[in-house]
């Protein structure tokens, strides 16, 4: 007869394990409470005040932001920029991830290096590269003048399109990597089965591969979106002074105008809009997963 397990022992064991886990996670939790959640909460608190001295609590900052066409324009331009960048990276990032998934392992190594290298190269350097490329004496202008498309070098820098292209290039790895991961997890037999049952390449892609890779696509889209709406350096340097986006607006109001409550309100509005989009897409993803797995 086997001895019955002693219930008390298991409980003690589990409790000590739980205690240990709490102790392990405590430093990180305290750090985050003190230096991430605390400051963000304080930012929210500051944004709910009328003036810098924080004497009068009011919603003035928010009504000021939401009641002004210029401010709403900045918010709209920022979110619209995020959307354009996301779509462009998806358009060229997905094929690259697909190419990776069907390449031999030797080529996969090369492609991976090409994708990871830019990701870890300084974003300031990569932004600077676009100033060199799109400048009046840059390669694009020189080429366009040389083939006779332009008579004179055109203003390419500081245009909305320049910001979109530069950001798309900078965020591209963030789109490609999650899609690569999800494509690697798809059973290759599914593709073979679809092809041998008579569906063509396009149909196989649209009906089999694309739906199955949806979680990776959504993850990539979220990363690119969140990252591009807050890409302060690229937005400022490639966009120039005429185009205003939310991150620069925060910086300007806080550092240059010393209007902390208003800067805090802009930051909260940007935070809220990013958070709202992330949560919505995540909910959407959960529902889609239900559809894919029947």
């Amino acid at each position: 007869m086997t001895p019955a397990p002693v219930p008390g022992e298991a409980v003690v064991l589990r409790r000590s394990r739980l205690l240990q886990q709490w102790q392990l996670v405590l430093p990180l939790a305290l750090f985050f409470a003190a230096f991430v959640l605390g400051p963000l909460a304080l930012l929210g608190y500051v944004s709910l005040h009328a003036d810098v001295s924080l004497e009068e609590a009011s919603l003035t900052q928010y009504t000021k932001f939401l009641g002004d066409g210029f401010n709403l324009g900045v918010l709209g331009a920022t979110l619209w920029l995020g959307l354009k960048v996301t779509l462009l990276t998806l358009l060229i990032g997905y094929p690259l991830a697909y190419l990776y998934s069907v390449s031999t392992s030797r080529w996969q190594g090369v492609l991976m290096l090409l994708i990871v290298l830019p990701l870890l190269t300084s974003a300031v350097v990569r932004t600077f590269a676009w100033l060199v490329i799109l400048g009046r004496q840059g390669i694009v202008n020189e080429l366009l003048v040389a083939v006779g498309l332009f008579e004179m070098p055109a203003k390419l820098l500081y245009t909305p399109a320049a910001v979109v292209v530069a950001l798309a290039q900078i965020e591209l790895p963030l789109m490609v990597l999650p899609i690569i991961t999800v494509l690697a997890g798809i059973d290759p037999n599914l593709r073979q089965a679809s092809l041998s049952l008579g569906a063509g390449s396009w149909r196989t892609f649209l009906r089999v591969i694309l739906p199955l890779s949806a979680p990776g696509v959504l993850a990539g889209c979220l990363l690119v979106y969140a990252s591009s709406v807050s890409a302060f350096v690229t937005q400022t340097l490639v966009g120039g002074g005429q185009q205003m986006f939310m991150p620069f607006y925060i910086y300007q109001q806080a550092i240059q105008a010393n209007n902390y409550p208003f800067a805090a309100a802009i930051a909260m509005i940007l935070l809220a809009s990013v958070l709202a989009i992330v949560v919505t897409v995540n909910l959407l993803a959960r529902r889609m997963r239900g559809v894919v797995h029947g």
Binding site: L37, L40, L43, A226, P247, A267
Partner: peptide, 27 residues
């Protein structure tokens, strides 16, 4: 829950966190 809190700086605009920390340290 903790995991998603700890991961949040990857998604949140870091500029907002920077401003929050500045105000925090000033307070």
């Amino acid at each position: 829950f903790l995991d998603s809190v700890f991961m949040s700086p990857l998604m949140l605009p870091t500029l907002a966190l920077g401003l929050g920390l500045l105000v925090w340290f000033n307070v």
